[in-house]
Design a binder for these strands. Structure first.
Lengths: 263, 263
DNA sequence: GAGTGGTCTAGACCACTAA
DNA sequence: TAGTGGTCTAGACCACTCC
């Protein structure tokens, strides 16, 4: 026999799944749930806490507050399209236009810092573990809400040869083209993708409700001679999707007539 | 001023981060934490519940139980290598040998069912929404623990032409080769990747502790004529990583000397 | 038997915000 | 002002499992 709070959570989850409670709807208040299920307030709170942790609902305090079924929009980031020379735009513009294509408003904020390179990133860049790097951070906003944060690490020796990398502003033509024009053309990328719960810093920056994972996307870029940069992107897991196209992409275009909902 | 339980959680999290508490270590017991911080048991439990939800610790009841710092091993699944004709093995063998290369023991279980095709998958396959599909399920185990579950959906009309797809057993040469040998060579794949909290069914199947997301990996396979299958893989988010290689992979091989820890 | 975490109650005070 | 969720206390009984 499952515990009471579990049964209450199951019941509410089922109501959401069946559409009896829909995105944006308010659940019964805590006193109402106490009465409906004949339990104490703490038990009700154990149930709703579970739904919050699953990312299904969100609780908002105050007179007009309550517990609400969360809604979600999902953006698709086409990782296999980004940053290849065939692209007509800089990578940031590619992102911007991709968001616009999906019917939303895009903006981004840059900054630059110099930092000691974390060991696992130094390894990817093939440089010494105690070396430093220029970190270009790009926080991307969709409809005014932070959606992802990307930190791109460039080894310092490279920055000394391509000093524009140390500009605290966006590089108009894009850093990929900038590097290519200086003889550092990236010919291969290695991407790694993980899912985990956010750090408190990520949760704050991306305004993630409890129970929302981040999709972590790590791209290492290589010229024929060396690794030139590694970028670490944290996507808000409830609002983003990554996409890759492998093989003959013309085939896929022929069959695409969708922009479907997440699974 | 953050609430008390928040400060306790922050304190414990920081001890874990600094290495004062390491993977496998036991946290102080609830009565000990009550005394240390001078709070009630419920407050202690609010703090530890938060760490559990972040996936940092795991609580085990019983006389020899306690709250333990979780350890994690991370496997890498090379999505861009899998299932291309250059591969010497069937995809399941490729997975098996990849796990073995990473120093672990691999096993898997198959079953087959016939199911109505969920709308979002019918769309990917370009078939009618009320049609059925053969679903081949493969649960993959690493060191005896379920690590991922993959459901591959084949439209029924295809199964009628390639009846081996309806076998409830593993297909020895792999379904990709089987299909290719019958004139359905997959020439392109479209991959989608999402992160979300598990459904209760996934949490049970993958034995996921609270606070562990799943990494969802959806691959649609295309021949020159049509989409022939879509597979949906749920990876336990705390134990898996996806990898893609884009561009000239020989370049990357030249620089690879790692099998590093997750970020 | 004794100590662990799991569940549950009853009641209190708080901050916030629309009415 | 009244109602929402957020925090916190004190105490109870339970199941489980090593000693």
């Amino acid at each position: 026999m499952p515990p009471l709070y579990q049964k209450i959570a199951d019941d509410l989850r089922e109501k959401i799944r069946r559409g009896e409670l829909r995105a944006g709807d308010r659940l019964p208040t805590e006193p109402q749930l106490q009465e409906q299920y004949g339990v104490s307030r703490n038990t009700v709170r154990l149930a709703t806490a579970q739904l919050v942790n699953e990312g299904l609902v969100e609780s908002i305090p105050g007179r007009s507050g309550g517990i609400f079924v969360r809604e979600r929009i999902t953006l698709t980031f086409h990782a296999s399209r980004a940053e290849f020379p065939t692209g007509a735009y800089a990578e940031t513009d590619a992102w911007r236009s991709e968001v616009a294509d999906q019917g939303h408003e895009a903006s981004q904020e840059f900054d630059l810092r110099i930092e000691a390179l974390p060991a696992e990133l130094a390894q990817r860049l093939g440089v010494e573990v105690d070396s430093h790097a220029a970190v270009r951070r790009c926080v991307r906003f969709v409809n005014g809400q932070a959606s992802s944060v990307q930190d791109t690490y460039y080894p310092m020796d490279l920055c000394q040869r391509v000093t524009e990398l140390l500009s605290p502003r966006d590089v108009p033509q894009g850093t990929t083209r900038l590097l290519a024009s200086r003889g550092y053309e990236q010919v291969a990328y290695e991407d790694e993708i993980l899912a985990r719960m956010p750090t408190p810093a990520e949760a704050q920056l991306l305004d993630l409700p409890p129970g929302t994972p981040v999709l972590l996307y790590i791209r290492t870029g290589f010229t024929n001679e060396r690794a030139v940069r590694v970028s670490v992107t944290s996507f808000a897991g409830d609002r983003n999707r990554l996409a890759y196209t492998l093989g003959d992409s013309a085939v896929i275009g022929r069959f695409r007539d969708r922009e479907e909902e997440p699974h």
